[in-house]
Computed example of a mutant assay.
Amino acid sequence: MTLRIQAYSDFICPFCFLAKAPLEEAIRDKDVEIEWMPFELRPNPAPPIDPWEDPSKLKGWESYITPTAQKWGVDMKLPRVSPHPYTGLAFEGFHYASEQGKGNEYINKVFRAFFQDEQDIGNPEILTKVAVEIGLNEVEFRDALATGRYKQAQETALQHAYEKAGITAVPTFIIGDERLQGAVGKEMIEQVIERQLAKGKSGLTEGLSCKLDETC
């Protein structure tokens, strides 16, 4: 039985982009699927962040993000997009892409557009370009964003993340009945995956029962 990982992330979260590499390495050649789950750290109209104008965030990049990216072999940079965009529209595009069977491709492409190409992923023209590059219909995608066709889908996804899944920080990975929060190394993810796959192989979930040759 395929093990499913729910990966909660936000496109402007540097730790989410960092975490993708070890996660994707950890699932290689395993019966595991990633289900990307939308999460907005600062939904509109919350004030957007501008790391280039915030010395504490610049220091964080220098002290934590850049060294970790180098250690894990992740090509990324602090985008010169000031302030950082809201991601609600990008996630509306994700819902459309998912319906076309290209959700994972879209996630990967939008992350790269922001953290590698330094593009404004709050701009519908940039998002449409991303969509076309992964083979989505340009007219349909543009119309979906312009009309807000998936706005309710995104609001429902956020409500699920906040209220049902209890997500308070990203990245958060829900792997079977275990939860990992934050960017962690490949080895830690593999350990959780192996435990969960071992449970699945048994085909048995234990509960209270009466067993053979035992009295109840």
Rank of each mutant, 00 (worst) to 15 (best):
W61P: 06
W61S: 05
E62T: 12
E62A: 15
S63H: 02
S63Q: 08
Y64R: 01
I65A: 07
P67Q: 07
Q70A: 13
Q70M: 13
W72E: 10
W72F: 05
V74I: 07
K77Q: 14
P79W: 02
V81S: 01
P83Y: 06
H84W: 12
H84A: 09
P85K: 09
P85W: 11
Y86E: 02
G88K: 10
G88A: 10
G88F: 07
L89E: 02
L89R: 05
E92S: 03
E92R: 11
G93V: 03
F94A: 09
H95D: 00
H95P: 06
E99D: 09
Q100Y: 03
E105M: 11
Y106N: 11
K109N: 09
F111A: 02
R112E: 14
A113V: 06
A113G: 08
D117I: 04
D120M: 14
I121G: 15
G122E: 04
G122W: 12
G122H: 09
P124M: 04
I126Q: 04
I126H: 04
L127P: 05
V132Q: 08
I134N: 06
G135F: 13
V139S: 04
V139W: 00
E140A: 10
F141Y: 15
F141H: 06
R142S: 15
R142Q: 12
D143M: 13
D143Q: 10
A144K: 12
L145V: 05
G148K: 14
R149A: 05
K151S: 07
Q152E: 11
Q152H: 11
Q152K: 14
A153D: 13
Q154L: 14
E155Y: 09
L158C: 03
L158P: 01
Q159Y: 11
H160A: 15
E163M: 14
E163Y: 04
K164C: 08
V170H: 10
T172L: 00
G176S: 07
D177M: 02
D177Q: 01
D177W: 00
R179F: 02
L180V: 09
Q181G: 14
V184C: 04
K186I: 03
M188D: 12
V192T: 11
L197W: 12
G203C: 03
G203A: 07
L208Y: 14
L208M: 07
L208W: 15
